[in-house]
Design a protein around this nucleic acid. Structure first.
Lengths: 223, 223
DNA sequence: AGAAAAGTGAACTAATTAGTTCAGAATGGG
DNA sequence: CCCATTCTGAACTAATTAGTTCACTTTTCT
């Protein structure tokens, strides 16, 4: 959290102020919608100072995006915890993924990356690799262990992980993205979580699930 | 296809030219990135003519978006065809959904709707209702019949339909969105299709699937 | 043909924007 | 306390933009 001194091009003590201001304004208005004067004002810094750090608006934007992607990656890294029963681990993972997807922060970063990713192709790549791909790698790591334990049976781990992460977007992600339901009601989120886990286990679970619930918990609505 | 005369506010014969030009430029550059002079030039029309149809840029943009959403809806409507075996219908539906999601057209419209949906809240709603919601309604329609026939067992049809549509986004949609893999290799798409159908049937299928393939086709990688 | 409607193009306003410049104020280390 | 670095603020350029205006041409209808 205190690695803001890792850098190469900085020259002064208001660098972080500039970055913070830029972050605020870019996340609020996107690239085109943000004016450099606004950024300087919000950062509490003169325009001259801003331009002494960043030669132009594009590089400032990319720097902000890079920092946000790194932040996102950090959050994602602490996703998968243990070698607990698959149902339990998956449920917790799904909860965090869904919560993250519905967060205001994620919404803004996602939106801006989608919007600007053909003006700045490397931005899309950065986001993808620090976000979705990171989550997938962690999931694969876990799935591997669960397969070894005989809890799951999966031939393509990457694909399965993708399917699971994708299932976490059901209903709510799209709605949040398009502002259809700005509120994020917790019961709905939990339904998506349970739905993802149930479907995933129905497809990839062996009989030998060692969960704390009864084995048929994976198919609760089959009488 | 010839209902371009359904209208209210038009006054002249170059209306469609204007709309077509605006469509091209907006889809290419987004709202802010598109200049009215560019639009007029691409439309082959004078700026004065353009402004004689649309009082300002925003309304022109919203009109283009409305038309594109309607187009999208039309494509989606002819998604579900028959009361064939579930596996077959779902496979065909998934193929069309995946193909649509990967199309250049969809990518552009999606991107622009995500980007501008807090500048124009109604745009997000429009897109959602004419796109994802339309698809879901058609799917629900089919799922209902399949449940009645005993092929599927589903308690929440809306949610199940959402899950299915969501599964069609696995891997490729995100990649296309962020420009990670601009090419859309058909085998990868077919894998997503099969994966979606298999997972869906594993969760919601009864034993009584009347497909043209053997019953265990729904779980082909279980030995 | 003749008149009304539709379209043109080019010049114009007013506003905003990215980026520059510079004389001087604040800051901080030795 | 001095001096170099950093920062300021305000004015400036040059470019772009949305939207307007108007004398003039083209199309269309009858």
């Amino acid at each position: 959290m205190v690695q803001q001194d890792d850098s190469r091009v900085r020259r002064g003590r208001k660098f972080n102020q500039v970055l913070a201001g830029a972050r605020t304004v870019f996340l609020e208005h996107g690239f085109e919608g943000a004016s450099v004067d606004d950024i300087a004002r919000v950062a509490g810094v003169s325009k001259a100072t801003l331009y002494s750090y960043f030669p132009d608006k594009k590089l400032l934007f990319l720097e902000v995006a890079r920092a946000e992607c790194a932040r996102q990656a950090e959050e994602a890294v602490q996703l998968i915890d243990q070698s607990a029963p698959a149902a339990q681990v998956l449920t917790e993972a799904a909860r965090r993924i869904v919560a993250f997807l519905l967060s205001d922060f994620s919404r803004r970063v996602f939106r801006i990356c989608v919007a600007e990713s053909d003006r700045f192709p490397e931005l899309g790549h950065q986001f993808y690799h620090s976000g979705p791909q990171m989550v997938r790698e962690r999931l694969v790591e876990f799935l591997q262990k669960a397969v070894a334990r005989g809890e799951l049976q999966i031939d393509d781990l990457d694909f399965a992980a993708d399917q699971f992460a994708t299932l976490c977007k059901a209903t709510l992600h799209e709605q949040a993205m398009f502002g259809v339901c700005t509120c994020a009601p917790p019961p709905a989120a939990e339904k998506v979580v349970q739905g993802a886990v149930e479907m995933f286990l129905a497809r990839y679970g062996t009989g030998r699930i060692m969960t704390d619930r009864a084995p048929e918990a994976a198919h609760p609505d089959r009488v």
